[in-house]
Design a binder for these strands. Structure first.
Lengths: 251, 251
DNA sequence: GCCTGGTAGCTGGTCGGACCAGCTCGGCGC
DNA sequence: GCGCCGAGCTGGTCCGACCAGCTACCAGGC
C-alpha cells in the first residue's frame, strides 16, 4: 500500500498550503485536530504529524499542546525567509560583496521612500534612536550595532515597502555578522562608531527635509566608503557604478 | 520528561542545521540512517522522521527510499525563499504596488550590473531570447510572458549578484501572476507585446554598449509606464521618485 | 438551588513495534 | 569462476499505547 508518487504527509501539506494561499484558511483559523486529519486524509497520525512539522517550519501553522481547538493558522511571516537567507550566507552561498551591493540598492530605495512618506512621529523615532546610539558608544560595538540596525529598520518601515524592508533587514543583519569579525579587529572602533553617528545624522536630515535623492545618494556613498576596502577590484567597480548611477561621487 | 521545553525532533534539526552552517556537514555528505539517529539522539524514530521532514522542507537534506547511505546533504538552495515569497504575495501580505516598486529597484540594479559584467555569450543569449519572443507574439500572451521572464532572468544572471537575481526573479513572477488578469482584459494585447519587444531591444542595446546608467534608467521608466495606471496616487508618486532618482523622466 | 470537586474525554508529544518494497552484497550451488 | 538467491539494510507507512494537562460536564455536599 505504498504510494510511489507522493508521500503521504505531502497530501496534507499541499492541501493546507493551497487553502492558505487561496484565503480559504485565514490567520486565526484552526486546523482539525491531528486525529481528525487522520480520518479526513486516510493516513496515519505519524504522517499527519510530519505534515504539521513541515507546515510549522514554514510558519504557516502552530501546534500547541493540549489545545482542543487544533493547530492555529498563523499570519504570513517573513521568518522562514530570514532563516533561509542566514543559512545561505552562513554557507558562503552568498558572499559579502553581493550582500553589500544589494544593501546599497535596498538602503537607497528605503531612504528615498522614507523621505517621501515619513511621518513626524517616525522622524521622532529616528531622533530617539540617534540619541540612544550616541549614548551607547561607550558600551561597546555590540549594543551600538543593534541600534544601528534599528535605525535602518525604522527608515525601512517609514518607507512603507514590505519587500524593501524585509530584504533590507535580512541583508543588513547578514552583512553585520560577516563583517563583525573584521570590525572587532579594527583598531579604533570608537572612531568608526562616531563616523556612523555622523552619517546617520546626515541621512536623518535629508529625510526630515524630504530630500529623497540626497537620502538615497548618502546611503550608497556611505556603504561604498565603509566596505569598498573589503571587496576585490571587480566588485568595487560594481559598487562604484551603483554610487554614480544616482549622481553620487566615489570618495 | 514529556515536555522538556524543546520538542524531541528539534534537537536533531538544530544539530544538523548547526553542522551545515558551520561547514561541518558539506553538500554531498550523508546523514546517519534514521535508525542510527534514533540511537544517537535517544529519541523515537517518529521524532527523527519529523526532524528529517523539517530539514527536507528547508531543502537542507533529502531522504531517498532504500538508500543505504542515508539522507543526502544538499547544496544551499533558494527554493524555500521562493516558496515563502510566493506565499506572501498569494496571501496579499505584499501588494502589487510594493512588488512593482521593488521590481523597479531590482531590475534597475540588475540592468546596471549586467551592463558592466555581461559576456558576449550572455549577450548572444539575450539576442536569441528576443528572436523567440518576436516569434511568440502570435502564440498568445502565455508563451510571450514566459519568454519575458526569461529575458530578465538572463540579465539578472549576467549581473552576477545572487540576491538581485533571486529577489528580482521572485518579484517578477509575482507581478506577472497578479497583473495577468488585468492584461488579459486589455483590448490590444498584441500592441502590448510589441511594445515589450521594443523595450527589450532598447535595454539590450544599452547592455551591449555597456551603458549601465541608461540600462538602469530604462528599467525604471519602462516599469513606470507599464504600471503607473494600476496603482493609486501615493504609490505612483513613489514610483515617479524612483524614476527621477537616476535622472529619468516620467512619461 | 447553587457552588464545588472529581472525572471523563479531548488535546498534542513521544515511544516502540510492525510490515512493506526495493536495493546491495555475500555466500552458496553449479 | 560464474551466476543466482536470500539475508539484511534502507526509507515509508501504519498501528497502538502511554503521558500530561486542559475543559466541560455531572454528581454530591451545603
Amino acid at each position: 500500500m505504498t504510494l510511489p508518487q507522493t508521500r503521504a504527509f505531502q497530501k496534507v501539506v499541499d492541501h493546507v498550503e493551497q487553502a492558505i494561499a487561496t484565503g480559504e484558511l485565514a490567520p486565526g483559523d484552526r486546523l482539525p485536530s491531528e486525529r481528525e486529519l487522520v480520518e479526513r486524509f486516510g493516513i496515519a497520525r505519524s504522517s499527519v504529524r510530519e505534515a504539521l512539522r513541515v507546515l510549522e517550519s514554514m510558519e504557516l501553522v502552530r501546534s500547541q499542546p493540549r489545545d482542543p481547538r487544533g493547530p492555529l493558522v498563523l499570519p504570513a511571516s517573513t521568518g522562514p525567509i530570514r532563516r533561509s537567507l542566514q543559512m545561505l550566507t552562513a554557507t558562503q552561498a552568498v558572499s559579502l560583496p553581493e550582500l553589500v551591493q544589494f544593501r546599497m540598492v535596498a538602503d537607497a530605495a528605503a531612504n528615498l521612500m522614507a523621505a517621501t512618506r515619513r511621518t513626524d512621529a517616525q522622524l521622532l523615532g529616528l531622533e530617539r534612536n540617534m540619541a540612544r546610539m550616541r549614548e551607547s558608544i561607550p558600551l561597546g560595538y555590540g549594543a551600538f550595532s543593534r541600534l544601528d540596525l534599528e535605525f535602518h529598520e525604522l527608515i525601512a518601515e517609514a518607507g512603507g515597502n514590505t519587500l524593501v524592508r524585509l530584504y533590507g533587514n535580512v541583508t543588513r543583519e547578514s552583512v553585520l555578522t560577516l563583517i563583525q569579525r573584521t570590525i572587532l579587529d579594527a583598531g579604533d572602533r570608537e572612531a568608526l562608531m562616531r563616523r556612523s553617528v555622523r552619517h546617520h545624522a546626515a541621512v536623518y536630515q535629508a529625510i526630515a527635509d524630504r530630500d529623497g535623492p540626497l537620502a538615497s545618494r548618502l546611503a550608497r556613498e556611505t556603504l561604498y566608503a565603509y566596505y569598498a576596502d573589503h571587496v576585490d577590484e571587480a566588485d568595487r567597480a560594481i559598487m562604484a557604478d551603483l554610487v554614480r548611477e544616482c549622481g553620487g561621487t566615489v570618495s
